[in-house]
Design a protein around this nucleic acid. Structure first.
Lengths: 202, 202
DNA sequence: GTCTATATTAAGATAGAC
DNA sequence: GTCTATCTTAATATAGAC
């Protein structure tokens, strides 16, 4: 097998294991076993565990950027795009109830380890933060777009943490609805977009 | 030194280290070093790492219960008590920005490890949840007290996670203010309590 | 109840054959 | 590029002296 494909398989396996079991708790043996590779060969591709972490974060950044671009393409209205973001809580509810939010839990773990890559993990948050802020600017909230973005991020993180603790699907649905209601209440442009004016169809 | 005091010192040191560095990342050597105890003697008090974890969780439960009792004593108004809870985000902001919320991060870590004690860690959340719900019941919100309690918990967790990621003190203050505003808006009894009717003083 | 010494296991990491 | 074999370190855990 080519080095590039093997490397990619390693990073994808590590990505999943880091998410499901945590960075510290995942060993080289776990990753090489998941890929079906000997531990010795492993070191041909990655010299240290931190190198794998860097690659995993880079992969997550690329995947996140691609997802944000898709949402941007799929919806012309900024309010609808924000709803796409909130909806991942529903879409990924099973995984979130088992392992939490991949962004928040990695950020928390690396902060506790005071790991050199902790700021790189925060870049994932920044991607969402800036993307959300751009949507709020498009909704005419230029002055407080970043604050609104942080508020939406904050809620998604809070929902993810409690969903993991209590494994309560109804709680997730209820709080997602509440975020939508908050969006309508705080961004009139968003409410209009979600309930098109009947006169437009007349 | 007596066994009881030594044991207590071990649990307190482990409590702090688990919070600051995480459960997995904390070794017996770290704890015994923090207490100034040989590793060998350590095993006289605790046979396994999981035993220490159980003791740490028990200590946290006792400390949390004592704190909730204090808040209950210190404030006669339920709205004021809820504000005491929200205020820990401000009071502990430095530690939260460095290591997150002790309840949420432990719950998350044990969930990822699929640790036998993960449900015990959730008991800490349950203490807050039920205490908050009782305050909302006292505010006349019997029907949705638990939902309101979960909402407040959700916000505190979201604020803690993002505060750790971005180390932004202004963000904490802003969101704490927003929780207070939400409390006033959703519980009229709370708003009255925080802004006493002038006529009462006339 | 605390110590030193040591056993055991598993992890990260390397060397060299193929 | 992948393997087996091995080194090193560190962690959990135990035994036995004091």
């Amino acid at each position: 097998m080519g080095a590039t494909e093997t490397r990619q398989q390693i990073v994808e396996a590590a990505d999943q294991l880091f998410y499901e079991n945590g960075f510290e708790a995942t060993s080289f043996a776990d990753i090489s076993k998941a890929v079906g590779l000997s531990r010795g060969n492993f070191y041909y591709h990655f010299k240290t565990k931190d190198e794998i972490l860097d690659a995993v974060i880079a992969l997550r950044i690329a995947n996140t950027q691609a997802m944000l671009d898709e949402w941007e393409e799929a919806a012309s209205q900024p309010a609808e795009r924000i709803r796409s973001f909130v909806h991942i809580l529903i879409m990924n509810k099973t995984k979130i109830m088992a392992h939490g939010c991949p962004v928040g839990t990695l950020s928390n773990e690396l902060a506790k380890l005071d790991h050199v890559a902790k700021d790189d993990a925060v870049k994932l948050f920044i991607l969402f933060r800036e993307w959300l802020a751009r949507q709020f600017i498009a909704l005419g909230r230029k002055a407080d777009a970043d604050k609104l973005a942080m508020h939406v991020l904050m809620r998604s993180q809070g929902v993810a943490t409690l969903a993991t603790a209590f494994r309560d699907e109804d709680f997730i649905r209820r709080e997602v609805e509440d975020i939508h209601a908050w969006l309508d209440a705080h961004c009139p442009a968003a409410a209009e977009a979600s309930q098109p004016n009947p006169r437009q169809h007349a």
